[in-house]
Amino acid sequence: MIVCVAVVGQQNNPLYLQSFTEAGDELKLHHIVHCSLDVIDERVNNPKKSWPTLNETFLGLLYPSENYKVYGYLTNTKVKFILVTIDMEVKDADMRNFFRRFHAAFVDAVSNPFHVPGKKITSRSFASRVSAIVKSFGSGTTA
């Protein structure tokens, strides 16, 4: 199950962060997402050391944190997508698929002429679209 998705801007500031858990561990998820930026920095700055695919937007598993797994995705405008899941068995292909759909939703949201680039995403339709993706993904893997 995906417990949290986040969009992080170029200055590493949160643009969108939504958790999908009932329990009040929102703060913990914030911390996890924030810490995972270090791994993204590391991968982006030393590409040859850590990751074989230079032009790949999907960054793969960033780090396992306690019971969570954190995945990352970097768009070519240096906006980062971060996903936190509690599934222990995750297929990379599923993650890639998720991020592709999420990216599409993000592109639509920032294409809104009233959206100022670099500001938080407050669009409700983006939020509902994201939760739909998250939901479909959750059911897809459990089914």
Binding site: W51, L61, L62, Y63, P64
Partner: peptide
Amino acid sequence: PGNVSPQFGTLENPLTEWEFQPAY
């Protein structure tokens, strides 16, 4: 073995950078 194998661990259970660090 940072420069040897880019993707550590097994395919199902890949290891990431921090897991090689005592700090983690």
